[in-house]
Write a protein that binds this DNA or RNA. Structure first.
Lengths: 234, 234
DNA sequence: CGAGATAGTCGTACAGTGTGCGAGTGACTA
DNA sequence: TAGTCACTCGCACACTGTACGACTATCTCG
């Protein structure tokens, strides 16, 4: 089997005090969570670790590979309930919420996730547990794949859009309320000729952002799960 | 009202032959479609237009703003049927497919889309037509927003993941079959301890990539629309 | 104990990036 | 004819990822 970035592991304990891949990944995750993709550079990362920039390259082939490792690290955070404990439907709901909150903790994910397929070990483990969960619903083998895929796609798509909004608020530096009211104003101007849009924006800015986004997420997930459940009952 | 990148327009015909924002956007779109986000640099773009790199900055404030324009250009390509013509359900289906194929034509979109909210004029127009379509289904005003949002999120999420796979095949330079068989091999190795995953990968690589991805997309969209439809019938 | 291999660090350098600045140029208006 | 406006563009700056090769500290083997 060919060597991959996933398979490479340190064979023995390091002689003197050295960098380690785990250390690098950990620090990179911190930087990414704090400063986003644009804030992560090999030089800055190395500086934070108190080492030279090119030292990192002994532990990690390229920056892209480092990002692959970081993405896989996120997949490790998601829990998928065993179907016996909660039943399929509420298990899937829990899974969806867990996936969402992991992405919200790592808002840089959407920006990089869609440029590469996820094939790391934690992605595999996640997939396995997901298939077990959806397998318990009574789908045909083929439908299990499709159902899990559509739920993941829905969740990731929704939360990715959510992150875009949230990050914009964060970067604007202003308070949520002032931002929302400005958005309203701006959108009403931009949506001037579009009465439905104007009304929609008004509706959506009437509650606080957080519960609005959550309601959004839950509504679609629920509908999707309904649709999937109907398929199994036939 | 504040000036935005959307509102700025040339006031009169140019005196001599000059660059124009439309020209720049058009060429940038070409470059992006061909070479992806990484392939678009202001210098290369200018070179293709036969001008100096910094000349572009007279027409466009920053590269990021240019990308905003390009994204909005994509939204212009999507058609949303009027509900009278097709009825809500099949209208939504058509809308979904149109959205999907637009993204497939511009596979760079997912990489940049989720880093900013879309508030350009074509995004607004798209939203308006979408709201009209979903409004015809008999949802409450609030549900119209939620339903349209969830369908868009599902479609964009699914097709974004799809693009990640397709681009990987494309970049590998190899034929689809050889790539698929290698993926199979690799995934079976990676999924060694994961029996469900192994079976799932095997199932998914048994047909050709194109119809596999399409079936995937349709399955989830259908389920979601079922779930939404059920909400309106109550 | 000595020699060589191994594991790891890192300074330098290269080819690129986005873009601010200010000088320059051609056409139109007064 | 003078001046202003619309537009172009070379240079420079600070930054990026990473290839290369020199360097050193430790471990292994004879």
């Amino acid at each position: 089997m060919r060597e991959t970035i996933w398979s490479r592991q340190r064979t023995a304990a390091p002689a003197r005090e050295t960098l380690s891949r785990e250390q690098i990944v950990k620090m990179a995750m911190l930087v990414l969570d704090e400063e986003g993709v644009a804030g992560l550079s090999m030089r800055k990362l190395a500086a934070r670790l108190g080492s030279g920039a090119t030292s990192l390259y002994w532990h990690v082939p390229t920056k892209d590979d480092l990002v692959d490792l970081l993405i896989d690290e996120v997949w490790a955070e998601i829990d998928v309930p065993e179907p016996e404990l909660a039943g399929w439907r509420s298990g899937a709901l829990l899974f969806g919420h867990s996936l969402r909150s992991a992405v919200l903790r790592h808002p840089w994910l959407p920006e990089v996730m869609y440029t590469r397929p996820s094939v790391g070990p934690h992605a595999m483990a996640l997939g396995e547990r997901g298939l077990v969960l959806f397998g318990a619903a009574g789908f045909s083998a083929r439908e299990v794949d499709l159902a899990m895929g559509s739920v993941m796609s829905y969740v990731l798509g929704t939360v990715s859009a959510e992150v875009a909004t949230r990050e914009m608020v964060r970067k604007s530096g202003r308070s949520e309320e002032s931002w929302v009211s400005e958005l309203l104003e701006q959108a009403e101007a931009a949506a001037g000729d579009y009465p439905q849009m104007r009304e929609s924006v008004r509706r959506r800015t009437s509650t606080d952002l957080d519960s609005e986004l959550t309601a959004n997420f839950v509504f679609g997930l629920d509908a999707l799960l309904d649709g999937l459940e109907a398929r199994v009952k036939k």
